[in-house]
Design a protein around this nucleic acid. Structure first.
Length: 273
DNA sequence: AGTCTAGCCTGGGAGC
DNA sequence: TGCTCCCAGGCTAGAC
């Protein structure tokens, strides 16, 4: 499922294949995919517009077109694919972008959670503000002291806190499990029981793991592939995610799995205190 | 105000 | 073989 490293990989792929190219037409196959404008209007509005560039905020992909923005969220199973011109689209391809160069991008999402949203340039700032996102974990604004200030009075388990996009943007279930394992901190430990030193350890491992995952092209758990249809390599480096019942890579104990806030938490009961 | 839960979705796997 | 049930989880709205 796309989290920050996977989203970043898609952004990089979009810039490399579509950056600067002119859209011939955009075709919507499933109207529910489109937000902020009717599918018909989006189709006419995008004709002959140049795809300037893509960027990322949290797990949102911001696509800058000549005259407006598109915001893409992949949610659980979304992907963007560089399709052959004569390739038959799958039933999960909800929109397609045809470029004058012959490039054809398919916006696919098996579970239909993902959305493509149309935003006018004068509205983009307020739209991003509405996302209510915390600092970017890989940027200099994500430091131990403000992070600790934000969580030190919270009754919530640190696992839930790290999944909260208001606290830090871009983390999902997989990377939070891995970050807490590397940090040696129990996912059940409450925010108010985390001291500054532990907050520092979490911040450090967050940056490390995300940077490493980006260098591996993200993780491919079930559906995720990059723009070129290739899977990531990070899933081969997980220490805890999806490994319940297997041996801890550090101490050899049996890894456990428990439900937290409706999601599976994977952890080592001995290494994580 | 802070925290929690249901609902959105579909395919794949387990169990019978 | 074929059916049913359960699970995966990011985000939002609404409840507590």
């Amino acid at each position: 499922m796309p989290e920050l490293p996977e989203v970043q990989t898609v952004v990089d792929g979009l810039n490399s294949v579509a950056g600067g190219k002119v859209i011939e037409r955009l075709v919507v196959h499933w109207p529910g995919y489109i937000q902020g404008i009717s599918p018909e209007k989006l189709e006419t509005e995008t004709i002959n517009q140049r795809f300037i560039s893509a960027s990322r905020r949290g797990k949102y992909i911001l696509i800058r077109l000549e005259r407006n923005y598109l915001i893409l969220h992949l949610r659980m199973t979304g992907s963007v694919l560089n399709l052959d011109p004569d390739e038959e689209r799958t039933k999960h391809t909800h929109a397609e972008m045809f470029f004058k160069s012959g490039l054809r991008l398919g916006f696919s999402d098996v579970r239909k959670f993902g959305r493509l949203e149309y935003v006018l340039p004068q509205k983009i700032e307020s739209r991003i503000a509405k996302m209510n996102l915390g600092p970017e974990p890989l940027e200099s604004g994500f430091t131990p002291e403000p992070f600790w200030e934000n969580i030190r009075k919270s009754d919530r388990p640190v696992k839930n806190i790290l999944l909260d996009q208001k606290i830090v943007a871009g983390l999902g279930n997989i990377y939070v499990c891995e970050i807490l394992f590397q940090s040696g901190i129990s996912p059940f430990k409450k925010g108010k029981d985390i001291n500054l030193e532990e907050a520092d350890v979490i911040v450090r491992h967050t940056k490390e793991i995300l940077a490493f995952a980006i260098s591996k092209g993200g993780s491919s758990i079930r559906d995720y592939v990059n723009v070129d249809g290739k899977t990531g390599g990070m899933q081969n480096h997980f220490d805890v995610y999806g490994r319940a019942g297997e041996a801890c890579t550090a101490c050899g104990a049996t890894l456990e799995k428990e439900k937290q806030a409706g999601r599976s938490t994977f952890f080592c009961p001995f290494c994580q205190k």
